[in-house]
Amino acid sequence: MIHVSRLSKSFKVYKREAGIYQAIHSFFQRKYERVDALDSISFDIPKGEIVGYIGPNGAGKSTTIKILSGILVPDEGECVINGYVPWKDRKEYVKKIGVVFGQRSQLWWDIPVIDSFHLLKDIYTIEPTIFQESLTELTALLDLKEILKMPTRQLSLGQRMRCEIAASLLHRPDILFLDEPTIGLDAVSKKAVRTFIKKINLEFQTTVILTTHDMQDIESLAQRIILIGKGRVLFDGTIPNLRDIVPDPKLSLEDVLVYLYQKLGI
């Protein structure tokens, strides 16, 4: 389903030093620093799996998501998803995926949510009957009935996130990328979002790739964890597998990660 092998990506970051002299100097001759965001990443994900993609800030999580969703082109390596290479055949490929960025909204701020949904219907050229079906299903599943007619700006963060998820599922994608979907939510909303993700995964067999810093998201959702740091895959397996490599089995998952981050120096 998702096949990724030896994916690498590096960025040129230009160094800026303090002081006027340095500023003038760098004006004429910029110093670049090469940063390896991804260094030969490989993994395979079968259909219907929920994978937690975790790692500290700057580990390369969002670079991976951007490559897998076709926004970025990698320097090296291959990636085949559902038979598509994401950054080629962009238009065909993106019909099969849904992406939720926890920090950004795809809904129009001033108009009712349902109108944003109708726009998406046209963007993804969804058949009217299928759209109606999806809408009914998602409204029931995510409990949207009351809020569909409200403008986005009047929604609470939790309500908005539910709408965002629904918006990404209207075209029935095979794969759902969730980038920090619970960020900033209160405990109740977090729990609700987790339940929905689980339901969607069960109901539609949607493959879910989830990046988050919240270990409870991982514990309640992910059947499998891929841990990356400094652009490399450091661990790939189940939560019990992960606990096996730490000496103290009673540690919380959060502490397990802290231990690993420190031990691996990332």
Binding site: G70, I71, V94, I97, V99, F101, R104, I123
Partner: peptide
């Protein structure tokens, strides 16, 4: 800068039109 263009890249329609 606000990532809206990334969102546009994620959609199956012409970039210019979007």
């Amino acid at each position: 800068s606000n990532g809206e263009f990334d969102r546009i890249l994620l959609r199956p329609k012409s970039l210019v039109l979007q």
